[in-house]
Simulated assay, not measured.
Amino acid sequence: MNSFSSPYQIDDPRFRNLIQKNARLRQLATGFEWTEGPVWFADHQHLFFSDIPANRMMRLTLDGQVSTYRQPSDYSNGNTRDRQGRLVSCQHGTRSVTRTELDGTRTVIADSYQGKRLNSPNDVIVQSTGAIWFSDPTYGILSDYEGYTAEPEQVARNVFRVDPSTGEVEAMITDFTQPNGLAFSADESVLYVAESGSSHDAGVPSVIRAFKLDDTGRILSDDVFATIDRGLPDGMRVDIAGNLWSSASDGIHCFHPDGTRLGKILVPEVVSNLCFGGVRGNRLLITATTSVYEIAVNARSAI
């Protein structure tokens, strides 16, 4: 992709209101093995992300300065920030979800369910209530590339919820082949979950499912929200208008809240994940295979 080619595919005229037509995709940094788990810390103007096979977590500024934040990272994958500003991470190596406290120490949030080790926590999000949700596919124990080879102890690949008051871990969704990216709607009434099972089984549909929740996090309904037509869905984010931005093999796919695909931002590497960031919060920061990219948009994160 050269500097004069458009990175946009317009599928619906409404997409034009969400993009900056003169903005171009910019590669901020490259040379990594497999980038994942971007999370923006606005108070420091830093992006943190995982380089999973290299067993490290990186720090990046928008002027392209990159440094190592944590190595070894226990093969960290997905990352987020809780409402107290603390880093919450999924770690393949320890098969756990941890929180980095403000003093730099790490607290284990979850590493087992019903007395058995988790598979390999993949993505994580935190509700305004403090409840922590995470997906638990088996990618991190399938080989020694992104963790340590092991037999799964869990009978399913679940989406779990950690109760904010008791710390109890509960399996909320149990019927995915490989649950992956997670995102909440702006009002937290809908949980979006990516199905990435087609990575190892072509018969698994590459879909994003939408789960309506009640105030206690109980599931009221389950519907297929959208289908990814290139590759599979991985990391996702929702903007303040309710549009969902999902990773795919050809870039970022943007969906209206009704599930209509509005358009794509085309990226020259397979995209794993994304987040909103920048000084004004209107930059898409994209982890894609060996690189991190950014592009200005007319959207900001829902949280």
Rank of each mutant, 00 (worst) to 15 (best):
R81Y: 03
I303H: 13
G130R: 07
L18M: 08
A296I: 04
R280N: 14
R14P: 06
R237A: 12
D82T: 05
Q9T: 13
S221F: 12
I208E: 10
G37P: 02
G130S: 04
L142R: 15
L60S: 12
G203M: 11
E294C: 13
L118V: 09
A156T: 14
V270D: 03
R230W: 04
T138R: 14
A241R: 13
I141N: 02
D214W: 01
P164M: 02
I303V: 12
D123W: 02
Q91N: 12
Q65C: 10
F48V: 08
W40I: 03
L266T: 12
A302D: 08
S3D: 12
F134L: 14
K116Q: 12
S198D: 05
G203W: 06
V270C: 07
T216H: 14
R157I: 01
P13Y: 01
P257S: 04
Y139F: 09
W245M: 04
S206V: 04
V66I: 13
V271Y: 03
T174D: 15
F4L: 15
M236A: 14
D187H: 02
S67Q: 09
E101P: 07
R261Y: 00
S135E: 15
H46E: 13
L284T: 08
S196Q: 11
D51V: 04
V224D: 15
G167F: 11
A299Q: 15
R56M: 01
T166H: 03
K264A: 11
L102P: 04
S112N: 13
I219S: 03
D51I: 02
V88Y: 04
N273C: 04
L18A: 11
Q27I: 09
T149D: 01
G130K: 03
A42V: 08
G231L: 06
T260L: 06
Q114W: 02
A241I: 00
G140M: 08
H200F: 09
M57A: 10
L60Q: 14
P13L: 03
E195L: 11
S143F: 14
M58I: 07
F49T: 11
L28W: 10
D214V: 05
